[in-house]
Amino acid sequence: MRRDGSVDGSLRAEKTDSRAFCPKQTGKGKNMNEMLRAQDVTFSYSHEQHKALDGLTTQVTRGEFVAVLGANGCGKSTLAKHFNAILLPSSGTVYIEDIPTTDEDRLLEMRQKVGMVFQNPDNQIVATVVEEDVAFALENLGVPPAEIRTRIDEAMKMAGIYKHREKAPHKLSGGQKQRVAIAGVIAMRPDCLILDEATAMLDPIGREKVMRTVKTLNRDYGITVVHITHYMEEAAMADRVIVMSEGHIAMEGAPKEVFSRVDEVKALHLDVPQSAELCHALTAAGLPMPDDIIGVDECAAALYKAITGKEAPVCPQP
């Protein structure tokens, strides 16, 4: 089942020189900037008639930060599980780079390329010491011990849990545990990180730290991020937002674009960021506000302008 060296060996060689976009020669004329692609994907869980995914087509570009939103049961998690071949589509195809997820021989390679972090940190930590858990994936891939050491140290530093490396996971807070889980995935040096409601069970501080980590991974290390979330403020940080409803994509675009369509978003039983909602309400009440506001700072600036008629003084970023 394992193909020695071919998984970690070749990927390692390729990645040590550059973390950024590196074109592969294997493409059959396809866009090599493409990380993930779902083509007319339909999926239903065997015991039910209901289609969890219904003819969904989308793609994720390399280096992109995509947020996926949607009410419960809209198929977000099902889509996520298609992106690293945990689930295979009933019809249609999912591609990771140019590999169709049905290619069983390249399963490990796909799992290594697309790392996944789940909601409950307790249920994805295998080992009883942080560093041993981070090393789990590399042990599975058959990476030599000396290299495991350097890669997990690097991953733990990237996730900001290096100082906890010898602790027992159950002694850590939820946010720290989730960052351990992220480090465990990052250690594989994936091209893409999928967070399946990874912030849902965390307290606000833990959530913020996890989001900061994810943001850093995306910005500084060029890791593509697909973040499934219920928090609109987190979605507002993304490059692109996909709103799902009943197994297909209902809305798609830059956060500003999507969240300015307040009524449409609300019709899908979702919220918009509070700033967007405030501006929308003010406009409706007769105080015209720009309709593309999603952040707190820009909302404050716009309010200042609306009230005083002057440009808001630029305040230093925290």
């Binding site: 599980k81 690293n84 945990i86 490990l108 799992r111 290594q112 790392g115 996944m116 789940f118 409950n120 249920n123 994805q124 295998v126 789990f136 994936a137 599975n140 891939l141 889980a181 465990g184 995935v185 594989m188």
Partner: peptide, 11 residues
């Protein structure tokens, strides 16, 4: 869930 997480980490 653990089984799935393990699979995701190439177990």
């Amino acid at each position: 869930e653990l089984a799935m997480a393990m699979e995701c980490r190439c177990y």
